[in-house]
């Protein structure tokens, strides 16, 4: 009798065999340390390359120099002024854009007339780079805060509209039919069924619009801003202070990380039911 083809555990005299395990793998597991190690490794390699002179600091400042630029900002007290100025612009612009965007987006999600009228307008205006409209915003809103808030607000508005009305579409129709069958008035169906049902989509939209607001703050602060992270980055660019430029960019990405953490927490609370 021929031996059975057995891999892994050895065959036994009576012909029985243990079945070799062949499952497992292909299933991403959380590895808490890995991102941290990768981060440290990349920064370390970068710093080492700068020390060894492989990266001339004319073209790429070392991490240590960027930290130094941060230190200077902290020391001179300009850091809080820059962050404060940008945050207030981002917050105001985002709030205006989101409020208006939700109003229009929900209207488009609920009313056929609003959708028929709004969709072509939104589709036509959404892809326009808001930076191209900067001169117009300056004519309309001046070179003070309003034009900066408006630039961010406009950038946030359109994605919010689209997120809101597609989120309305994703609310199961049977829930609306259920509301009707229980005699709920239309406004109650909107506030108790459509809006909470659209919340996951709307919150996902918030993540996108928060990033857009951060991106646009640099453009918004091109014009007439004394303080602000964007103004700081631009002036560092003008002055060829590459270490400060990267410090500013780092500041923006830290801000992005903070915003995303906050939004994550909001999602966990608001969408507890998922």
């Amino acid at each position: 009798m021929p031996e059975p083809d057995v891999r892994g555990a050895g065959g036994v005299a009576d012909g029985s065999a243990t079945i070799a395990f062949r499952g497992g793998g292909f299933q991403p597991q959380p590895r808490r340390l890995v991102p941290f190690i990768v981060f440290v490794l990349v920064i370390g390699l970068w710093q080492a390359a700068s020390w060894r002179g492989w990266l001339p600091d004319l073209f790429m400042p070392s991490p240590w120099q960027i930290v130094g630029a941060f230190g200077d900002m902290l020391h001179s007290g300009t850091l809080t002024r820059h962050v404060g100025a940008s945050l207030s612009r981002i917050a105001l612009g985002w709030l205006f854009g989101t409020t208006a965007g939700l109003a229009v987006g929900l209207a488009m999600g609920i009313f056929s007339v609003a959708r028929a009228g709004g969709l072509p307008v939104v589709s036509a205006l959404f892809p326009i780079p808001k930076i191209a409209l900067l001169p117009l915003f300056i004519l309309w809103f001046g070179i003070g805060e309003p034009s900066k808030v408006a630039t961010i607000g406009f950038g946030v508005f359109f994605p919010t509209v689209i997120a809101a009305y597609t989120a309305c579409d994703s609310v199961p129709r049977n829930l609306i039919r259920m509301g009707q069958s229980f005699g709920l008035p239309a406004h109650a169906i909107v506030w108790k069924i459509v809006v909470p049902g659209a919340m996951p989509g709307i919150l996902a939209g918030f993540r996108i619009t928060a990033s857009i607001a951060l991106i646009l703050v640099v453009a918004a602060e091109m014009i007439g801003a004394e303080y602000g992270i964007g103004a700081f980055i631009l002036s560092a660019g003008n002055l060829m202070q590459t270490d400060q430029l990267l410090a500013g960019v780092t500041l923006l990405s830290l801000l992005g990380l903070a915003v995303s953490t906050v939004l994550g927490a909001v999602e966990r609370i608001v969408l507890r039911w998922r």
């Binding site: 039919r177 229980f182 005699g183 069924i193 049902g197 969408l271 039911w273």
Partner: peptide, 18 residues
């Protein structure tokens, strides 16, 4: 056709709210 964001009691209450 339950509202997933409402508790059991709140889902039942929906029919009474108006």
């Amino acid at each position: 056709a339950l509202l997933p964001w409402r508790s059991v009691a709140a889902n039942v209450a929906l029919a009474l709210e108006h």
